[in-house]
Nucleic acid binder design. Sequence first.
DNA 1: TAATACTCTACTAATTTGGTAGGATAATAA
DNA 2: TTATTATCCTACCAAATTAGTAGAGTATTA
Lengths: 134, 134
Amino acid sequence: MLSNKAKYALRALGYLAGKYPGGPVQIAEIAEQQKIPLKFLETILLELRKADILLSKKGKGGGYTLERDPKQISVASVIRAIDGPISMLPCVSLYFYKKCDDCDETHCSLNRVFTDVRDATIKVLEKKTVRDLI
Amino acid sequence: MLSNKAKYALRALGYLAGKYPGGPVQIAEIAEQQKIPLKFLETILLELRKADILLSKKGKGGGYTLERDPKQISVASVIRAIDGPISMLPCVSLYFYKKCDDCDETHCSLNRVFTDVRDATIKVLEKKTVRDLI
DNA sequence: TAATACTCTACTAATTTGGTAGGATAATAA
DNA sequence: TTATTATCCTACCAAATTAGTAGAGTATTA
């Protein structure tokens, strides 16, 4: 399951995609329009900026904009930035790999099964973009 | 991510599949062979029995056996029994559906995206069985 | 009737989730 | 230069979930 945080992130990005290209949009506007708690959204957008998904501008007339065209931002990258791994097991994760301590991966049947699951899931999530969230 | 509990469940079922068909296998044997905490495994196997995945027999010579042929037990059904939903959003879940309170599903873009993700993931998980976990 | 092995309820500690508070910093404009 | 705007950042907190453990109860068999 996606966390609430990731859901908010995707909703916020969909909103920004709807305004792309265009000037900076303020957190407060996104929070109000998408009904997301303002302070929570602050921390979320900050993370998305650190993940090179958003650009920010401070001061009057400031706000957030997408770092690039909505079609170039995959849903997979957003989930990874907020929730971390997409895979169902650490030992099959591409971006958050972690060795199992109690199995040999070349022979582990769980590893084999969940590698296939990962491939199927990620194939869809890499193809879907923020453009699809408008 | 799968919970530890689900991982243990799958490992235990893989072990039982390796002995199928055959007499009852005791919790203690599974726990030792698969290095799963005994008392934790007790609660897990109980849940799998209640989900009609395992049969149990009490008393001397008792233990657990698969309820049916390993090929007839999907990995999807095991995950659902232990962790619950496989989908990434409650509003696209087939077995654990829950309405979003803040979006109209027929028009919600998140719903559309994660329905496709669900279909891809579940297609694999329904095809994989406990037989693949031996 | 004693031993075996699952059953069940309840409890606990650690981690994660879903936020909030409040001040710091940077940009703009009067 | 100073007020205003809006993001940045650290720290905190409560509730929920996860990962187990404890211990007594029940059914089966020999």
